[in-house]
Design a protein around this nucleic acid. Structure first.
Ligand SMILES: [Mn+2]
Ligand SMILES: [Mn+2]
Ligand SMILES: [Zn+2]
Ligand SMILES: [Zn+2]
Lengths: 143, 143
DNA sequence: TATATAAATGATAATAATTTTCATTTACAA
DNA sequence: TTGTAAATGAAAATTATTATCATTTATATA
């Protein structure tokens, strides 16, 4: 079942956030489409109904909604990049959210899943991204 | 086995790229650490040995190395964001690299792997990111 | 080894994305 | 109602990324 504006609003309330017209507008926009939207795209849509809204409010609202896991952040290609040496061959990553340490791991095969998805959706799949985020041992010690 | 500067250089050659001191310096820097580094961080490191290098050259070199899969791009938290409504509960994504369409999929469980990784590395894993990138049916038709 | 030439570089500017600051407004608890 | 902390929007500041273009350079080949 999809998340409605009403549902989102309730969760905001539960967490002590005020329910402003601007936030409603952002929620409505996001809840009204399957697309993934950049902050700028959301701004443009919201702006139609709510011409006085500021882009900053979009960013702030998105941060809150993401923190509450009401929306989710995607990391497709393009910007937002950092690099590490490529271990030989295909592999995946384990990333420390605190210090940025990256551990490569191999031996986990996603081709079965890839084929299933391709069959089910008609997508021609070119690649994938599998990353685990957490705290490395060091960063656990130092709180 | 880790990728050495020498190995990287050979691959560059094979693909018809010239071997410049700047590129060597970038390769050396990347090959010399396990860390993942932002373009800015790489620039700072390279800049020490090679004060005249331009940041633009870093970007250009990284693009090439990524294209040749000698390094890999990470998408941890932070910037590079676009949003989609959260389907009820945890799910993963299939993203069209051309038009940006996103399909959520569920029913793929990574907790086994997560536990294995946690045991092996001592990481306290907080979450993960699993995304497949490809072309949706529409974008396949329209080339 | 000298030379021709396409490729690469770096300075600079342009663009785009994101965050900070701060004075003003507003949601909502009491 | 009213008080107050929270939220907003304008503007500026930062930061990331890309485009342009004159100059330099790696390297194939004579
Ligand atoms: Mn993989
Ligand atoms: Mn998952
Ligand atoms: Zn760490
Ligand atoms: Zn598409």
């Amino acid at each position: 079942m999809r998340l409605t504006e009403r549902k989102i609003a309730a969760t905001l309330r539960q967490h002590g956030y005020k329910l402003t017209p601007q936030r409603r507008a952002v929620m409505r926009t996001i809840a009204s489409t399957q697309d993934h939207l950049t902050p700028a795209a959301i701004y443009q849509k919201v702006h139609k109904d709510h011409p006085s809204i500021g882009l900053v409010t979009i960013y702030r609202t998105l941060d809150i909604l993401a923190k509450l896991e009401l929306i989710c952040e995607l990391h497709a290609g393009g910007s937002c990049r950092s690099y590490t040496v490529g271990a030989r061959g295909h592999h995946h990553h384990l990333i420390c959210s605190n210090c940025g340490e990256v551990i490569d791991f191999t031996g986990y095969d996603l081709t079965q899943l890839e084929q299933r998805l391709s069959r089910q959706t008609g997508f021609e799949i070119e690649g994938h991204l599998l990353e685990f985020i957490g705290l490395c041992q060091n960063c656990q010690k130092n709180d």
